[in-house]
Simulated assay, not measured.
Amino acid sequence: MEMKDVRARAREAMKGYCRVCPVCDGRACSGEVPGMGGLGTGSAFRANVTALAGVKLNMRLMHGAAQPDTATSALGLDFDIPVLAAPIGGVSFNMGGALSEDAYVDAILGGCRASGIVGCTGDGVPPFIIDAALGGIRKVDGHGIVFIKPWDGEELEQKLEAAFDTGARVFGMDVDAAGLITLRKMGRPVSPKTPEQLREIIAMVHAAGGKFILKGVMTVDEAELAITVGADAIVVSNHGGRVLDHTPGTAEVLPDIAEAVHGRICIIVDGGVRDGVDVLKMLALGADLVMIGRPFAVAAIGGGQEGVAAYVAALKAQLTQAMVLTGCANVAEADRRILYGFKR
């Protein structure tokens, strides 16, 4: 399956919700939430893309890295390339409903598993979103990461307990969903969590034998706090620019966060990543793993599991070529020496 065909099918299927632009930069879809756009002016969405585009690479060809190793391991999981499919829910009101929630989750998880990487599942309202997520994780024998939103009260604990029964070993909370407008419109607001609340949640996950990812860290102090409360990983993320207008791009804040906490916690990043070259840039800026959202949604809507696998194959080819051309024999060698003009 060719990605051009996948994108053409997705463009038709997502008409009115996503234009599947040649360059997915948030300019055409500003304010389209629900939908695939960024909140308000779309500034935060665009900042993710422009910040990453501003990172330049040093080309080096006098080396022996002719066949780079793209594989890595983190959080007890193995990855053929250091990529995760981001947790996205609400296919009907964000993507047009061309696929059911179940079919979308199956495409993401199945395509990722077949490609040697890991998919994440989302949460939300109505209940079929989490039902599809948990059911999909069971179908792939726990090969996925369940993300639960920062609900108040018993709902959070109940959903986490249900997630433990799927066979998954890694769980996350997208605290960057706090205040998400789509949930507020449905009468189900979510809220930030105090350090004490997070300690309790993480202790619950650890007691169940799992690892915990805290998604939505954009500052050094909160990265440090994530370590203090016991998180196993953070996702440097502004929720794709969908919750707070005028935030910086993740590629802008990642270097300072990585400098402060690298080696003490697994660092994942998302935001504006479109191809394998972008993946390499994020690794060089300090990430251990890279999470990708909208392009995986397009791949799933346009081609199901085959479309997801085709996208991962394209990512791997692009990443491999970029590693050859920057002299990286493996992903661990993708550091700041390959970045042009990086002063930190």
Rank of each mutant, 00 (worst) to 15 (best):
M1R: 13
K4W: 08
V6Y: 11
V6I: 15
E12A: 15
A13E: 10
V20K: 09
C21F: 08
C21H: 06
V23N: 11
A28E: 13
G31L: 08
E32W: 12
G42F: 11
R46N: 02
N48I: 02
T50K: 11
L52P: 01
L57E: 10
M62Q: 11
A65F: 11
A66V: 14
Q67D: 14
T70I: 10
A71L: 03
S73Q: 15
L75H: 10
G76E: 10
F79E: 09
V83G: 03
L84P: 04
L84W: 04
A86N: 10
G90C: 03
G97V: 11
A103Q: 09
A103N: 05
Y104V: 08
Y104W: 09
D106R: 14
L109H: 11
G111K: 12
R113K: 15
A114N: 15
T121M: 04
V125T: 11
I129K: 10
I129H: 06
I130Q: 13
A132T: 07
A132N: 09
I137L: 15
G142T: 08
P150R: 06
P150E: 01
G153E: 04
K159S: 03
K159A: 01
K159C: 05
E161S: 05
E161P: 01
F164N: 02
D165T: 01
F171L: 04
M173V: 14
D174V: 03
G187L: 04
E196L: 05
Q197L: 05
L198E: 08
M204I: 01
A208Y: 03
L214P: 07
E224I: 13
L225H: 05
A226R: 07
T228H: 10
N238H: 00
H246Y: 14
P248Y: 00
T250I: 01
V253N: 02
V253M: 03
V253C: 05
P255W: 13
D256S: 00
I257H: 00
I268K: 08
I268P: 08
G271H: 03
G272H: 04
D275I: 06
G276A: 09
A284H: 03
G286L: 00
A287D: 06
G293P: 04
A297G: 14
A299L: 10
I301R: 07
G303A: 13
G303R: 14
V308A: 12
A313H: 13
A313S: 14
A314C: 02
M323S: 08
M323R: 07
C328F: 12
N330A: 01
V331M: 11
D335F: 04
